[in-house]
Write a protein that binds this DNA or RNA. Structure first.
Lengths: 109, 109
DNA sequence: TGAACATATGAACACTTATTCATATTACAT
DNA sequence: ATGTAATATGAATAAGTGTTCATATGTTCA
């Protein structure tokens, strides 16, 4: 080896987040890594929506949407408001749009 | 149904990005959805690093790191500088730290 | 040239994940 | 009560992904 490993390893680990944080981060970004979930979140930028409206808008099965909404709920990215038979979903985090925009900025460079 | 679907669907689709963009976004965030890749990027916040230094720092196999670096390269998140036998990797996008911080902000709320 | 080292890569495997189908649950209307 | 509609969920399946092992490629030095 042509460079001082030990020193470099130490410096590298100095500001490394702990594993719990790393896993949480990975789980968080995992939510954004699926096209269906992205489309759902984009749909919710406009207004709160019922499950069937989301399904109809994206032209996908209701079951698929429900499953994905569950994941979005689990990661606290959407919230539900129940009204009669319907469940109305809306975004739970103001940063979501910003996060999308950062992604867009990268891919359109 | 208790609300006007057609109108809502139209409004929802109005500002929806096209599918190409959606897929690109998903692919971009997919890179951030793995703990090993996150750790690699965190390591590179400090300084450029050779493959073996990364492997040693994260206590993982060289092959694993190489495979993940390929993915990071493919999505233009790291760049390589070859010097003799070694390949030195560094971050290719200034926004990466910001993206991490947004993720952290969400998970620590 | 040959040995040693750093990195890259293909194949195999175990594991995860998204979607679909079928069905359960809940709310409402008659 | 019964039927209908909206949503949620479990099981099954197909596709995707990360790691490992083995090996190839490329570089340096003796």
């Amino acid at each position: 080896m042509s460079h001082d490993h030990e020193k470099i390893v130490k410096a590298t680990l100095k500001n490394m987040p702990d594993m719990d944080t790393i896993f949480d981060l990975a789980d968080f970004f995992k939510v954004f890594s699926d096209s269906t979930r992205i489309r759902i979140m984009c749909a919710l930028f406009e207004q709160e929506l019922s499950v069937c409206c989301i399904a109809e808008s994206l032209n996908m099965e209701q079951s698929t949407i429900s499953h994905q909404l569950r994941i979005l709920r689990r990661e606290n990215l959407v919230k539900v408001r129940k009204d009669g038979k319907q469940s109305y979903y809306s975004l739970a985090d103001d940063h979501i749009k910003l996060i999308f925009e950062m992604g867009l900025e990268h891919i359109t460079e």
